[in-house]
């Protein structure tokens, strides 16, 4: 008997090792997997908070064919042998997801036209797919006092959906976490409590893990809409991190450096602040080639030209020959 567990999601079956969550199984299956706003696979303990990944378990396991009484968060629920899960095929799930997206949006400022995250925002994608066209919310939206968290990261608390990803990122990537969630309920906010700036070598990663425009790159503010910039894979020798990054170019100028993300929008290798903020010259990097962007993204392909090759720019021989 194999140790693999068989799970069926929306009619498609897959065998996965024990300990796999429904979300992981669904991602392996491909097709429509549940969305995630708070779950972030590279960070431990994330998940369970945003509730957009709710799915229906129609059959708990082979031994226990009863359905689970409530919708469950697919990112934290582990699969059992013979589990049957309904994601996109269940109207109940879609209705719940609609509701959660509505909740996430009622206090969101919807200032996408001036938000740097627009175009690569998980909340935008999510509401495009599951949101209502019109809001039913007539009350005032919540506002916060602005706080400055240092020279690199811009905090827009009004846009935050309290996914806690940046808290876990600071816990797990940096030596000491200096920010966290203050207060309670719908007035809870990300803050540093005594208004100190977030400064350490990996603090820039909180920008990459943020699913919305709450934490954005101060050095990139208002430089360019993301879909007009051109992403290139590049690397450099860095003694602090892997040095593998994505350069976002405007003409020949590097206007932003981010970590590389996989198809699920999750960072594959976290990078240090040195690479992210301090190396904006093309001569600092070895460019590997255009970055593959998933076809659904507005940051589409088909707009690449070779960067102007000057002696100062190290372009990989492979890329030039192509």
């Amino acid at each position: 008997m194999s140790d693999l567990l068989k799970v069926t999601i929306d009619g498609k079956s897959i065998e996965v090792p024990p300990g796999t969550t429904i979300m992981q199984a669904a991602r392996q299956l491909g097709g429509k997997y549940p969305p995630a706003m708070c779950y972030y696979e590279p960070l431990k303990n994330t998940g369970g908070k945003c509730r957009v990944c709710l799915v229906k378990v129609a059959q708990t396991s082979e031994a226990n064919p009863r359905p689970m009484p409530k919708l469950v968060a697919s990112c934290i629920t582990r699969v059992e042998h013979g589990m049957v899960v309904e994601n996109e095929t269940s109207p109940e799930v879609l209705d719940a997801r609609n509701g959660v997206v509505e909740f996430l949006l009622i206090n969101h400022p919807l200032d996408c036209p001036v938000c740097d995250q627009a175009g690569e925002c998980d909340l935008q994608n999510l509401s495009y797919e599951h949101g209502h066209e019109q809001t039913r919310y007539e009350e005032g939206r919540r506002e916060f006092e602005r706080i400055d968290i240092g020279p690199y990261v811009q905090l827009h608390m009004t846009r935050c959906i309290l996914c806690y990803r940046c808290v876990y990122a600071a816990d797990q990537l940096t030596g000491q976490r200096v920010h966290g969630v203050l207060n309670r309920g719908d007035v809870s906010e990300i803050g540093t409590y005594i208004q100190q700036s977030i400064e350490n070598e990996f603090s820039g990663n909180i920008i990459d893990v943020c699913p919305v425009g709450a934490l954005t790159d101060k050095t990139y503010r208002f430089k360019q809409r993301v879909w007009f910039s051109k992403p290139f894979d590049a690397h450099r020798d860095c003694d602090k991190c892997c040095g593998k990054v994505v350069l976002w170019m405007k003409g020949d100028a590097i206007i932003r450096v981010t970590a590389r993300k996989n198809e699920f929008g999750e960072v594959t290798d976290f990078i240090c602040n040195d690479c992210r903020f301090e190396h904006k010259q093309a001569s600092d990097w070895s460019i590997e080639g255009p970055r593959d962007i998933i076809p659904e993204s507005v940051i589409g392909a088909n707009k690449y030209e070779l960067p102007v090759v000057s002696p100062a720019v190290n372009v990989d021989a492979k890329f030039v020959s192509e």
């Binding site: 369970g48 908070k49 945003c50 509730r51 957009v52 509701g99 959660v100 909740f103 996430l104 009622i106 206090n107 959906i161 309290l162 806690y164 969630v181 207060n183 309670r184 309920g185 719908d186 007035v187 809870s188």
Partner: peptide
């Protein structure tokens, strides 16, 4: 304020 439906 941890999970969205209740918080909002």
């Amino acid at each position: 304020g941890q999970c969205s439906p209740c918080r909002e």
